[in-house]
């Protein structure tokens, strides 16, 4: 069992259907790292899970379009409970233009494939407790971009 700082066990919450590849990949990684793992069908269930487990240090893994539902409020709620989010941004995902910058501003880890979640887990596990660390984008193990770099790539301005 990996500890998450003083008295807070770490927990991975994956937001995906049971048969989803994302759920399988996350469950596999959680088992590999000996982390507790819970699966939620949707972002609504994930809020309940995060809110009920404030004694845990939580990483929520899900698709960006699911986690960004309801005006992206999940990211703020997760931050309020000291949880971090890892969002899978797939090429064909129906994402509104301002969602990515907003997610990054909330400290969300963005990944392009399920194989990149391992890098996020490593970064999360090396952090003490659940600090609101810098936003990070894992495009692959070798390439990480800052928010500013990502926005430059996307050609978008950050509206502060």
């Amino acid at each position: 069992m990996v500890e998450g700082g003083p008295g807070r066990h770490r927990l991975v919450v994956v937001v995906a259907a049971a048969h989803d590849a994302l759920a399988a990949a996350t469950a596999r990684l959680a088992a590999e790292y000996e982390l507790d793992e819970r699966r939620c069908d949707d972002v609504y269930a994930a809020v309940a899970e995060v809110a009920r487990r404030q004694d845990r240090c939580i990483l929520v893994v899900g698709r960006l379009e699911e986690l960004a539902k309801e005006d992206r409020r999940f990211f703020a709620i997760a931050a309020r409970h000291g949880a971090r989010c890892c969002a899978l941004l797939e090429a064909a995902a129906p994402i509104e233009p301002n969602v990515v910058p907003a997610a990054l501003r909330m400290g969300v880890f963005l990944v392009g494939t399920t194989s990149e979640i391992k890098g996020v887990l490593d970064a999360w596990l090396t952090s003490a407790g659940c600090p609101a660390s810098e936003a990070m984008v894992c495009l692959d193990d070798e390439c990480r971009a800052s928010e500013a770099e990502l926005n430059a790539l996307l050609g978008q301005e950050i509206d502060e």
């Binding site: 009920r52 999940f74 309020r80």
Partner: peptide
């Protein structure tokens, strides 16, 4: 009015 905020409030 926001559903996620509502669930969070209910859980608290």
């Amino acid at each position: 009015t926001n559903l996620l905020e509502a669930i969070d409030a209910a859980a608290r």
